[in-house]
Amino acid sequence: MTTLLAFVRFCGIVARASLSNPPPVRRIVEEAHGIGVRSLPILLVVSAFVGTNLAVQGYNAFAPLGGERLIGMFVALAGVRELAPVMVAAMVAAKAGTEMASQIAVMRIGEQIDALEVMALSPHWFLVTPRLVGILLVIPALTMISIFTLVLCSYGVAVYQLGLDGNDFIQLAAATTRPVDLLSCAAKSLVFGAIICLVSCFYGFHTRPGPAGVGQATNAAVVVSAVSCAALNYVLSEVLFG
């Protein structure tokens, strides 16, 4: 409970620091680039294999009903709307989020954050704002890339492994995924991105001293942000698609 209050207060400071000064543009570009480039490879791999499994899974569920042709629709609904945004959030939390937490925690115990304060620079503005803006710029794009990879790979499995009709797949998937759904996915990913960044930076700022402290902060960052995103996903799905 006190942690939650401290977190809300932290978000308030970040919001104020971000709005009071023009953001450091160069740092934003660095962060956006770093987050995007480092998260992309693992995201491609995970998206690809979640896509393949989704196809196999859908096939197993619908074939007994004679509905295996609906697999394109299943992939679009389950994969595009739900799995892709959450999966991107989970992987970005695991990769970029843990990096934010451990970098900031290391700066905290090395008194580098105090050094920023003494140099009259708000550490929230200098460390959190660029990461926040960076992640918000990048995560919708990562989500779109992940959706594309996922659908492509489940198409591959549906057609080549399961021997289904590719045209059916594409028609159903396209019919189910309206442009507005993609926008909703992007919106979801923005919410997730903000949560991941704020939670990870929060745990970094409030680390305990020593290597063990850094480890714990990093650990807490990934678990709390992943759990928050997954839980919030249901609410967002109800609002956006329900």
């Binding site: 008194e111 580098q112 050094a115 003494v118 009259a120």
Partner: peptide
């Protein structure tokens, strides 16, 4: 507070240099 801090410099125990 930040205006005051601009008048300060501090040498930290371990340096607190940005890695």
């Amino acid at each position: 507070r930040y205006a005051v801090r601009r008048r300060f410099g501090m040498m930290f125990q371990q340096g607190a240099l940005f890695d």
